[in-house]
Design a protein around this nucleic acid. Structure first.
Lengths: 232, 232
DNA sequence: TTGAAACAATGACATGAGTCATGTATGAAA
DNA sequence: TTTCATACATGACTCATGTCATTGTTTCAA
């Protein structure tokens, strides 16, 4: 069960902290990376829209973003989430194509931004770094292949159970629904908001979860896990 | 509507013919590529299984392959099809990871095979070539992102209509079902064989298609197109 | 303070999709 | 030639999911 929403607490202090840069001993490179400043990304802000010309790569330090396709104004589907340590926009830079999806800030975030020239400079001069970026791109393939298989094989109830489990705060069993609205959860799974309410109502009736202060608290995580794995 | 099954007729005579190699003027490289021989891939042959250690990259010249995940022996899901001009296995070589999916030959095929050493040699010495392979990986990401969005937004009936349309032989309007069995179509869409039969039965009753010599002939492609686009 | 609009949530009903059982056809083995 | 296993195809039934209408709550502007 892959983590959808990260619970990591280590703070990002420098672009150097990103795993992709960890192997570097090049002092000029480290100096350049250390000089970059984090930018603020406000909730609701759109980083870029699908088919827009690429304008750089974002290295996410904190907060939450959604990566989505829009079939029409009515039908938005969330392909994935962007959070700490994620790197957004590499594939467009590499392939010299417009962005293949849109990205929007779900909760206030911080990130480093590198322009196309800066990226190509990094990309061109350093073999280890190049392979690091390429591994990042390739791991995206595996991740989304796993996601499509999961969507096809699981009932919507199972997908919701999984989201609630992996995003729960282990200490208090509160699902991070404050980070992801019911509307966004429905778009992440690819169903309707009404149906998500229905399933949440069922889960509440069956005493798997309960609603406290508009938050979802998990009270039977083992049963939710059975549902998430499609084994009931 | 992206083509699922290629109808291209140009024959592949050399590894040089692949678009990714088209920009090359390096005589040593061309000589090496020209020396490679095609290998035969028999129907039913498995190129590799998910989680297997990578052993090379296949450049498909003819025939049809399926790229799939297996949840269990009972649940196989086809992530995509491999056919002429497709390159299979790049991401594992680049990321130095086992194969993230399995690949099986659906109808007799031919391909060029390059070992990891040969690939790394190509990859390491030539900037244009490197970018060409990376573009290939990035276009795979875009393709499967589009696929996942399509699956989530379309009814199964719409997906079947689309498969029948794009795989049809334009001259005779025969859907290439001889290339893809009903069983494999159901695995490509992610549904049951029985439900595919049901929809085909409905299409036949509504005079959109008809069965001739165990082949599906399209007789109302405009109506099928409406269904494929989810506009009925 | 009030009223309109937007959002949250529920219920009734309709449709899409899956499962199981059954019958027929085909091919391989005895 | 017969028998058995597998594949093909259909029908009945059940469950999952979506749509529409409705009610209640919250927010914001006048």
């Amino acid at each position: 069960m892959e983590t959808i929403i990260s619970m990591e607490t280590k703070q990002v202090n420098s672009l150097c902290d990103f795993p992709v840069f960890k192997t570097q001993n090049d002092l000029t490179l480290c100096s350049f990376l250390s000089s970059k400043k984090q930018i603020d990304l406000k909730k609701g802000e759109i980083l870029f829209l699908e088919k827009e010309q690429y304008k750089g790569v974002y290295f996410i330090c904190s907060g939450l973003l959604k990566i989505y396709h829009t079939k029409s104004k009515k039908h938005e589907f969330i392909l994935g989430l962007g959070q700490k340590w994620d790197i957004i926009g590499i594939d467009s830079i590499i392939s010299n194509n417009p962005y293949p999806h849109s990205v929007k800030v779900v909760s206030d975030a911080k990130a480093y931004f590198l322009s196309p020239d800066e990226m190509l400079e990094l990309f061109g001069t350093n073999t280890d770094l190049r392979f690091g970026f390429l591994k990042e791109v390739c791991s995206n393939i595996k991740k989304i292949e796993n996601r499509i298989t999961s969507i096809v094989n699981k009932r919507i109830k199972g997908q919701l159970a999984e989201i609630l489990l992996v995003s729960s705060d282990c200490e208090n069993n509160y699902a991070a629904s404050v980070k992801l609205s019911i509307q966004d959860i429905s778009k992440l799974i690819g169903t309707t908001q009404n149906y998500i309410y229905k399933i949440i109502s069922d889960f509440t009736e069956n005493k798997l979860i309960k609603i406290e202060n508009k938050k979802i608290k998990i009270i039977n995580s083992s049963e939710l896990s059975v549902i998430a794995n499609g084994l009931e």
